[in-house]
Design a binder for these strands. Structure first.
Length: 834
RNA sequence: GCGAGAGUGGCGGAACUGGCAGACGCGCGAGACUUAGGAUCUCGUGGGCAACCGUGGGGGUUCAAGUCCCCCCUCUCGCACCA
C-alpha cells in the first residue's frame, strides 16, 4: 500500500499524500452470460459471442476517490475495494477491463504537502512540474487491498491549452476583471471554499475584496442544457436535486420602472409579475450603479454611509445578519408601469447585486423578505392575492387565492379573479405589448472563475505582449511550471509565479517582442473535468482523445465517487464535456450515465473518524491483523455501498471466520486438499444450492449489492460445511464466485484444487434457472390474514389440493365459521377469509 | 425556513412488482470435542408465562402493509435574504 514506486512517484513520497484518480473501463471482448445489467439498461442474451457489440461496452469510472490519509481510511478504502471487485467479476468472461489510476498532481492538499514537506521530491518526479501525469494500469490482483501490478506507465500529458483553446473556440473562455477575496495579512488570494465565516480558513484573517485580472469560463451559457440533460442520467436523487438548485433556474419577467423625477429606468427581475399591482416600494442593492443617480441631496450622507458599511461585509457576513433587515431611503422615486404610482426607492443589502438585475420591486404582502422590511420601516402593505391576512404575515401560498386589487386605472386591463398561474402569462404578455417588460429567465449559477493565484496549478499557456494576451503556439506545449522552492505569495495578489523571473519573463514566439507569462494558474478542478477522456486514450500525444476510442467507450456507464463532488466537480465536468460535444470532440452529451456515491466509514463510535476523537482505524493495521481479503470483504459486507457505516472490528472477525470456514471446506489441517473434496456427482440439493448462489452473487454484484452477495456465500459455506462429501463441481464454481471478493484466498484455493492458470482468468460461473428452484414449496396458510399454519407440498400441487390440505391444517381456526373467500396466491400463500 | 434521503431485534443489516418480518453477520445462551479454550463444530436467540404484541408515532386502503395513501415526530445531507 505504501510502496510509492507503483505509481512512479518520487522517492520519499507516500501514497498517503497522493490523491488517486482511478478509472475503470470495461470493454466487451467475447460474449458470456448475463441476465441483465440493470444500470446499463440492456438485456444481454445468453452466450453472446459477437465481439465488441456496443451493448456490451461497459465503462466505469471511479475518480476523485479522495485522499488516502491515515485519518480517513474508510472513505477511500471502500471505493478502492469496489472498483477491482467489479472489474474482476466482469473480467471473468465477457469484458476486457481497463483501469486508469493516477496521482493528480495539482490538488490543493498536495500543495500543502509540498509546502510543508519536501517539494524537492517532486522535482525528481518523472511526472515533472506542470504536467498532470496520469498512470494507466491494468489491474491484476496480486497486491494488497486492491489493485497493484502490471502498470502500463503511460504518461498522460495534460495539455490544457488544447482544451482551453477548444473552449475558447466556443467563446466560453473570457478574460475579465473579477472580485477576488483576499486576506490582506496572508498576501494571497483565496478561493471561496477557503473562506469560513467571512475569515480565511487558515489563520482566521479578515478578508477584503479587490479587483484582479481573472479568467472566467462562461458556464452560464450552458445553464439550460446542464439542467435539462439531467434527465439523461441515472444519478442519485439528492445529487440531481443539488445540481438543479445550484443552477437555480427561475422563470419570470424583467420589468422597467421609469424614474419619477429624472431620466432613466430601473430594471427589475421578478418571478411574480402577477403581484405587480402590490408593489409599494423598490430596493436596489447597495452596489447598484444607479444609486448615485437616484439619491437625492438630502439623503446622500446616510446612503454613502450605508454603502460603505455594506462594502466591508463579505457575502457571508451579510447572510449572517438574517434576522434584521436594514436599508436606507434614497429620496428617489420610480413609477409603477401598471398603475403609475410613485414608489420610493431604497437601498438594502438584502438585495444582492449578483442575482437578477440587482434591483427588485418590493411586494410586502406576498414576499416574506419584503414584508419584514416593510414592517421594519413602516412601508405600506397592499394585498393583491386574497386568502391570507397580509397585515399579519406575507401570504405566499399562491396555489390558493385569487388576484385582487389589480386593474389599471382606466379599467382596460385587469388581473382580478385570476389565479397566479393564469395571471403571470397574461401580465407578462401585456407588459411586452406596452414595451415595459419581457419574459426572462434567471440563474443562480455564476460564471466559473477559472483562475487561482497559486503556484500549485496548471499554468495558463498565455503570454502577455503589449498588454494583450496571446496563446502559446502548439509546439511550445505543454507549458510546465518552473521548478522552485519558493512558494511564497508574491505579495501583490498575483501568484508566486510572479516572483520567478526566469520563467516569467520571456519573448513572444511569434513577434519576438518581450513578453510576460500569465501568472494565474488553473483551479484544481481543471484536470478532473476531463481526465476520464484521457484514460480512454492515455498515450495519445496529438489529440485529446482518439475519436474511435471515444465513441467506443463513452459515456462512462458507472461512476463511483464521493458525494462531496455532487455539484462542483460533477457540474464542471458536465459543462466541459458539453463544450467538447458541441465542437465534436466527444460523441455524447453527458459524460457519466450512472453515478453512485460510496458512503464513508465512520469510527466504531459511529462518529466521523478523526484524530482528535481518537476513533481512527488504520486500514494497514487491520490488513496486518486480519489480512487484505478479510478487510476487503468486511468493507463490502458492512452494509449498502451508498450508506455511511460505522467500522466494527468484531465484524471483521466475523468475515475472517467465514473465510476460514471456506478454507476448511477444502483444505485439511496439513494444508493439503481435503479428502472431503471429491469428484462425485453432487446431490440435487447441493446443485440447487450452487445455482442459487451463482444467481444471487451474479445479480447482486450487477446491482452493487455486495453485502447480500456475501451473505449468500455464507449460506453456501454453512451448508457445505455440514456435508461429508464436497463435490468439485460444486466447490470449484464457488471459488470463482468468491474471487472478486477475496482474491488471495480464492487464488490459493484454486491452486490447491490443482488448477492453472489464475482464478482471475476463469470464466464466470453460469447458473441454470431451472436449478434455482426447489421441487417442493412451503405454503403459509393464513386465516383472516394471520399466519396459522404452513404446508409443505410438491411444486406441481393443484390449488384444490393445497386448499384441502390447508383446510385440514388450519381446521381449528376455521371450524364453525362461515367461509367467505379463499385467496390463493400462486406458489406464495393461501388465505381463508371467514 | 426550503429541498432530498432515511428511521426494522442488544448491534450492522435482510425482505423482488403489497404475500411466512428479522436472511446473513456480530453479540449472547446451551451442548459437543477438549488438560484448557477468547479455537472449532452443533443447536438456540424480537418481546411476552400465555392469548397475543411487534418495522419512529397516529389514522386509512386491503383478504393481506416494513412496503401504498394522509397527518405528525426524529436523524443525516445539501441550500440558505436567489426576488
Amino acid at each position: 500500500m505504501n510502496d510509492p514506486s507503483f505509481v512512479g512517484l518520487p522517492e520519499g513520497t507516500s501514497i498517503s499524500n497522493v490523491q488517486l484518480n482511478s478509472s475503470i473501463m470495461y470493454g466487451a471482448k467475447v460474449g458470456h452470460y448475463f441476465n441483465s445489467i440493470p444500470w446499463l439498461g440492456v438485456e444481454l442474451e445468453a452466450f453472446v459471442t459477437a465481439p465488441h457489440r456496443p451493448a456490451q461496452r461497459l465503462t466505469l469510472n471511479a475518480p476523485g476517490i479522495g485522499t488516502i490519509q491515515q485519518d480517513e481510511p474508510g472513505a477511500t478504502n471502500r471505493i478502492v475495494v469496489v472498483s477491482p471487485l467489479i472489474m474482476v467479476r466482469y473480467q471473468a468472461g465477457a469484458f476486457e477491463p481497463y483501469a486508469g489510476v493516477g496521482p493528480g498532481v495539482f490538488f490543493l492538499h498536495q500543495e500543502q504537502f509540498t509546502a510543508s514537506g519536501s517539494p524537492s521530491n517532486y522535482s525528481q518526479s518523472n511526472t515533472g512540474y506542470g504536467l498532470n501525469t496520469q498512470v494507466g494500469l491494468r489491474y491484476r490482483l496480486t497486491g494488497h487491498v486492491s489493485m497493484f501490478g502490471e502498470w502500463h506507465k503511460a504518461t498522460l500529458v495534460v495539455d490544457h491549452r488544447r482544451v482551453l483553446g477548444l473552449l475558447g473556440e466556443q467563446g466560453t473562455a473570457v478574460l475579465t476583471l473579477a472580485f477576488e477575496i483576499a486576506p490582506a495579512a496572508l498576501g494571497t488570494v483565496l478561493a471561496n471554499e477557503e473562506i469560513v465565516d467571512g475569515k480565511s480558513e487558515v489563520g482566521g484573517f479578515d478578508v477584503i475584496r479587490k479587483p484582479m485580472r481573472q479568467w472566467v469560463l462562461k458556464i452560464t451559457a450552458y445553464a439550460d442544457r446542464l439542467l435539462e440533460d439531467l434527465t439523461l442520467v441515472d444519478w442519485p436523487p439528492s445529487t440531481l436535486e443539488m445540481q438543479k438548485n445550484w443552477i437555480g433556474r427561475s422563470i419570470g419577467a424583467e420589468v422597467d420602472f421609469v424614474l419619477a423625477d429624472q431620466n432613466g429606468a430601473i430594471r427589475v427581475f421578478t418571478t411574480r409579475p402577477d403581484t405587480l399591482f402590490g408593489a409599494t416600494y423598490m430596493v436596489l442593492a447597495p452596489e447598484h450603479p444607479l444609486v448615485d443617480v437616484i439619491t437625492r441631496v438630502e439623503q446622500k450622507e446616510p446612503v454613502a454611509a450605508y454603502r460603505a458599511a455594506a462594502a466591508k461585509k463579505s457575502d457571508l457576513q451579510r447572510q449572517e445578519l438574517e434576522k434584521e433587515k436594514t436599508g436606507v431611503f434614497t429620496g428617489g422615486y420610480a413609477i409603477n408601469p401598471v398603475n403609475q404610482e410613485r414608489l420610493p426607492i431604497w437601498i438594502a443589502d438584502y438585495v444582492l447585486m449578483s442575482y437578477g438585475t440587482g434591483a427588485i420591486m418590493a411586494v410586502p404582502a406576498h414576499d416574506v423578505r419584503d414584508w419584514a422590511f416593510a414592517h421594519q420601516y413602516a412601508l405600506p402593505i397592499r394585498e393583491v392575492i386574497s386568502g391570507g391576512n397580509v397585515q399579519e404575515a406575507a401570504f405566499t401560498d399562491t396555489d390558493r387565492g385569487k388576484v385582487v386589487n389589480s386593474s389599471t386605472g382606466d379599467g382596460t386591463f385587469s388581473l382580478n379573479g385570476l389565479t397566479s398561474s393564469e395571471a403571470i402569462p397574461k401580465i407578462t404578455d401585456w407588459l411586452a405589448k406596452q414595451g415595459q417588460g419581457t419574459r426572462a429567465v434567471n440563474y443562480k449559477l455564476r460564471d466559473w472563475l477559472f483562475a487561482r493565484q497559486r503556484y500549485w496549478g496548471e499554468p495558463f499557456p498565455i503570454v502577455w505582449v503589449d498588454g494583450e494576451a496571446r496563446p502559446l503556439p502548439e509546439e511550445q506545449l505543454p507549458l510546465a511550471l518552473p521548478e522552485s522552492n519558493n512558494f511564497k505569495p508574491s505579495g501583490t495578489g498575483e501568484s508566486p509565479l510572479a516572483n520567478l523571473d526566469q520563467w516569467l519573463v520571456t519573448t513572444d514566439p511569434t513577434t519576438n517582442k518581450p513578453a510576460r507569462r500569465e501568472t494565474n494558474t488553473m483551479p484544481q478542478w481543471a484536470g478532473s473535468c476531463w481526465y476520464y477522456l484521457r484514460f480512454i486514450d492515455p498515450k495519445s500525444a496529438t489529440q485529446l482523445v482518439d475519436p474511435e476510442k471515444e465513441r467506443y467507450w463513452m459515456p462512462v456507464d458507472l461512476y463511483i465517487g464521493g458525494s462531496e463532488h455532487a455539484v462542483l466537480h460533477l457540474l464542471y465536468a458536465r459543462f466541459w464535456h458539453k463544450v467538447l460535444f458541441d465542437i465534436g470532440v466527444v460523441s455524447t452529451p453527458e459524460p457519466f450515465r450512472k453515478l453512485v456515491h460510496q458512503g464513508i466509514v465512520l469510527g466504531e463510535d459511529n462518529q466521523k473518524m478523526s484524530k482528535s476523537r481518537g476513533n481512527v482505524v488504520n486500514p494497514d493495521d487491520m490488513i496486518d491483523q486480519f489480512g487484505a481479503d478479510a478487510v476487503r470483504l468486511y468493507e463490502m459486507f458492512m452494509g449498502p455501498l451508498e450508506a455511511m457505516k460505522p467500522w466494527s472490528t468484531r465484524g471483521v472477525e466475523g468475515v475472517t471466520r467465514f473465510l476460514e470456514r471456506v478454507w476448511r471446506l477444502m483444505v485439511d489441517e496439513q494444508g493439503r486438499l481435503s479428502h472431503a473434496v471429491v469428484s462425485a456427482q453432487p446431490s440435487l440439493d447441493h446443485q440447487r444450492l450452487l445455482h442459487q448462489t451463482i444467481k444471487k452473487v451474479t445479480e447482486d454484484i450487477e446491482a452493487l449489492r455486495f453485502n447480500t452477495a456475501i451473505s449468500q456465500m455464507m449460506i453456501f459455506t454453512n451448508e457445505m460445511t455440514k456435508a461429508q462429501q464436497r463435490p468439485r463441481s460444486v466447490i470449484e464454481p464457488f471459488v470463482l464466485l468468491l474471487s472478486p471478493f477475496a482474491p488471495h484466498v480464492a487464488e490459493e484455493l484454486w491452486d490447491l484444487l490443482g488448477h492453472q492458470p489464475s482464478v482471475s482468468q476463469q470464466p464466470w460461473p453460469i447458473f441454470d434457472p431451472a436449478m434455482t428452484v426447489s421441487e417442493r414449496m412451503t405454503i403459509p396458510v393464513q386465516v383472516n390474514g394471520r399466519l396459522r399454519a404452513k404446508i409443505d407440498v410438491p411444486v406441481g400441487t393443484s390449488r384444490d389440493e393445497i386448499e384441502r390440505l390447508a383446510r385440514a391444517e388450519a381446521a381449528e381456526w376455521i371450524q364453525g365459521k362461515e367461509s367467505k373467500k379463499v385467496i390463493y396466491v400462486e406458489k406464495k400463500l393461501l388465505n381463508f377469509v371467514v
